[in-house]
Amino acid sequence: MAIRTIRVFGDPVLRAVSAPVGEVDEGVRALVADLIDTVREPGRAGVAAPQIGVNLRAFSYNVDGSVGYILNPVVVEVRGEPVPTGEGCLSVPGLWHDALRHPYARVEGVDLDGEKVVLEGTGLMAQALQHETDHLDGMLYLQRLTPEERKVAMREIRESDWF
């Protein structure tokens, strides 16, 4: 339907815990279509609803040629010790830092028809599942950085043209 503008660091919607998706109506269907259109832009692995200004538990993903979405996702399993993983975020443009992420993640939720959806993977998929679910909990990847790395990132944000 539309490629939506990404909200950036400082926007309160990015810090709010997202509400569960209730009844699937035309608004929810339009949200999913917009999430899919928005994640298809080059260089995007995931887009969470808060990043386009909608406080609902939904995100889209675009990993290794697989594009999709999930409603009301919950991380049900992670495996392995968290390791520093190079990460960026559309809501914090231009920054790239090592966030602590588990090497495997499994997320469960539903689709527009209320059918169960299970997403899982390693590598970029595991990272995207954790990153996008964090967005729905009002958390940016900056909160997954070491204190020293977070100080560097915050300085970079203050010095950026977009902040």
Rank of each mutant, 00 (worst) to 15 (best):
P12D: 10
P12I: 07
V13L: 04
L14G: 05
R15V: 13
R15Q: 14
A16P: 01
A16W: 05
A16S: 14
A16R: 15
A16V: 09
A16Y: 06
V17I: 15
V17K: 15
V17M: 09
V17Q: 13
S18I: 07
S18P: 04
A19N: 12
P20T: 09
P20G: 08
P20S: 13
V21F: 08
G22I: 06
G22D: 13
G22Q: 13
E23W: 01
E23V: 14
E23M: 10
V24N: 04
V24I: 14
D25Y: 07
D25W: 06
E26D: 15
G27Y: 00
V28T: 13
V28C: 04
V28D: 04
A30F: 00
L31A: 05
L31S: 04
L31W: 02
D34S: 13
D34A: 12
L35V: 09
L35E: 04
L35K: 06
I36H: 06
I36E: 05
I36M: 09
D37L: 01
D37N: 10
V39R: 03
V39W: 02
R40D: 00
R40M: 12
E41Q: 14
E41R: 12
E41W: 00
P42I: 06
P42H: 02
G43P: 03
G43I: 03
R44C: 11
R44M: 11
A45R: 13
A45T: 13
A45G: 11
A45N: 12
G46M: 05
G46Y: 01
V47Y: 03
V47Q: 03
V47F: 06
A48V: 04
A49V: 08
A49H: 06
A49Q: 04
P50G: 04
Q51D: 03
Q51V: 07
I52G: 00
G53S: 00
G53Y: 00
V54A: 02
V54S: 01
N55Y: 01
N55R: 13
S60N: 10
S60A: 15
N62V: 07
V63S: 02
D64M: 09
S66T: 14
S66M: 12
V67C: 12
Y69T: 09
Y69E: 07
I70N: 02
I70Q: 03
L71T: 06
L71I: 12
N72H: 11
P73H: 09
P73D: 08
V74T: 14
V74D: 11
V74W: 10
V74G: 01
V74S: 12
V75F: 05
V78Q: 08
V78N: 01
V78C: 06
V78Y: 04
R79S: 11
R79A: 13
G80Q: 10
G80K: 09
G80N: 09
G80W: 09
P82E: 09
